[in-house]
Design a protein around this nucleic acid. Structure first.
Length: 479
RNA sequence: CGAGAUGUGGCACAGCUUGGUAGUGCGCUUGGUUCGGGACCAAGAGGCCGCAGGUUCGAAUCCUGUCAUCUCGACCA
């Protein structure tokens, strides 16, 4: 039909070509624009508004837990970066360097921060002298640069926006507790606000952050069955503190090193939302971060009283704290329906002469296309409830997709058989040997994503080598 | 970084083989008619053909280089 044909012209079907579908959404929903530098994207107003909503929610939670925001420089002298050897070895291949200042060659080249551990450490060495100075709970919102070879909007860009928390604690227990607490903040944000189900877990040693003792992460499963690491939280022990001479005098008048964490999440989460909730009509945004939560489309706007009623509806919702937009442009209603579906607006309200006569409006929820009538009397409350129901419905839908694509496997043949049904999460036991991780990856294509905090006993032996198993691991292809 | 594909008004593409006035559709602007799922008619605007060299009387077209985008692989705290 004509309508279907039009949709196909606009957005590539996700079943046909998921990668193309993804980039189509990024550009057609006005989230990003490309620039002349590879991997450096413009985050357009609609995309940036999503990020601002994420920032607002997370920032409030960080602060409620006692964290303070700071800002560190974007340049790191080479000698400073080199102080912790595992750290520099991990990042050296992908840092960008500044070697000139104007026409002068710099005596020491400066790296554009790929992450700011070393800057925080240098500063902490200055300001932590006594047990009274602990804990230090700092966070910064900034951009970082990593010279990636393969780039994709939001998922892997050379410069990206993020938040990095860096904390110092008197004891290892307290630092571990902070690491887990922040992992839980991220998990809760994903599940409650983004409606993205996640698995909390620990990275295997081969996949740890450079310089970390333990790396925790949350893993989400995208619509195509590939995993996306959506946030991480690291426990550093006192390794950096020793490398950077961060020491303080404790209550017993002894000089000791503090224990450290860092944790971060990025604009990659926007990519996660797109690939978790999106469909062939475009983006589907969770209400908590949608720049526009409700769009009002007046029908037959030229008719007496329609625009006035629509404006009154808009004002009522606005006063109730709902992010609402009324589109009274001269585009046809059908055009507007398609446009706001592509942009992922969670709820559309239609108001026409017939509705006004009946004292109602039509409400359509984006994620499932369901239509219903809402009485104009008390509409604010009904819409607020609908937005909550939309979040719940989106979460259930995403969870069902994850469940459908999660397989329990006991050996590599089962893994290969499972993957013939499509990509997804593989739950399988592991002996703890890195050689098995490599072999699983080489033979089946799935890598270890994490050791879930919620362990299940799927059997006594490693699914790769048959030796005694130590952990249940979540395996998947990943972005 | 390796292999492949692609760069032509805002978008999608044709033209390139065989060098000779830069095209089509959508979108955009204006006017009118429309308005409950991407409306219609009419008029109009908009392009150093990714960039740089070369070959040629003449290059979107042929050659070389380079940059970017996409796909697959390697890498990826």
């Amino acid at each position: 039909m004509a309508q279907d044909k039009k949709l196909v012209e606009q957005i590539t079907s996700m079943d046909e070509d998921f990668a193309k579908w993804y980039t189509d959404i990024c550009t057609k929903a006005d989230l990003v624009g490309y620039t002349s530098v590879k991997g450096c994207m413009i985050i357009r107003p609609y995309g940036y508004a999503i990020w601002e909503n994420m920032q607002r929610i997370l920032d409030a939670r960080f602060k409620a837990l006692g964290h303070e925001n700071v800002y560190m420089p974007m340049f790191i002298p080479e000698s400073l970066l080199n102080k912790e050897k595992d750290h520099v070895a991990g990042f050296a291949p992908e840092v960008a360097w500044v070697t000139m200042g104007g026409a002068e060659k710099l005596t020491e080249r400066l790296c554009v921060r790929p992450t700011s551990e070393v800057l925080f450490c240098e500063h902490y060495a200055d300001i932590i002298k006594s047990y009274r100075d602990l804990p230090k709970l700092y966070n910064q919102w900034c951009s970082v640069v990593r010279w990636e070879k393969t780039t994709r909007p939001f998922l892997r860009s050379r410069e990206f926006l993020w938040q990095e928390g860096h904390t110092m604690h008197a004891t290892a227990e307290e630092a571990v507790a902070e690491t887990v607490q922040m992992l839980n903040v991220y998990a809760d944000f994903h599940e409650k606000d983004l409606a993205v189900p996640v698995v909390r877990g620990r990275k295997t040693p081969s996949d740890k952050f450079a310089g970390a003792e333990d790396t925790y992460a949350i893993e989400a499963l995208m619509h195509d069955g590939k995993a996306l690491q959506s946030a991480t939280s690291h426990y550093f022990g006192d390794g950096f503190a020793r490398a950077f001479d961060i020491a303080y005098t404790d209550k017993d008048n002894k000089l000791v090193h503090p224990f450290q964490t860092s944790w971060g999440c990025t604009t990659r989460m926007i990519g996660g939302i797109i690939m978790t909730h999106g469909d062939d009509r475009g983006l589907v945004l969770p209400p908590a971060v949608a720049p526009v939560q409700v769009v009002i489309v007046p029908i037959a706007a030229h008719k007496e009283g329609v625009l006035e009623k629509a404006a009154a509806l808009r004002d009522a919702l606005k006063n109730a704290g709902i992010r609402v937009k009324m589109d009274d442009s001269d585009q046809s209603p059908g055009w507007k329906f398609a446009e706001y579906e592509m942009r992922g607006v969670p709820v559309r309200l239609e108001l026409g002469p017939r509705d006004i006569e009946n004292g109602q409006c039509v409400a359509v929820t984006r994620f499932d296309g369901q239509k219903r009538f809402l009485a104009l009397d008390g509409v604010e409350k009904a819409v607020a409830e609908l937005l909550v129901a939309v979040r719940d419905g989106m979460y259930e839908k995403a969870l069902a997709n994850r469940e459908r694509r999660t397989y329990v496997c006991h050996d590599l043949e089962e893994v290969k058989a499972a993957l013939t049904h499509g990509d997804g999460f593989i739950k399988g036991m592991w002996c703890g040997d890195e050689a098995c991780e490599d072999k699983v990856k080489a033979e089946t294509g799935v890598g270890s994503r994490c050791i879930p905090l919620e362990q299940e006993d799927l059997g006594p032996v490693c699914m790769c080598c048959g030796k005694p198993a130590r952990h249940m691991v979540l395996w998947a292809k990943a972005y």
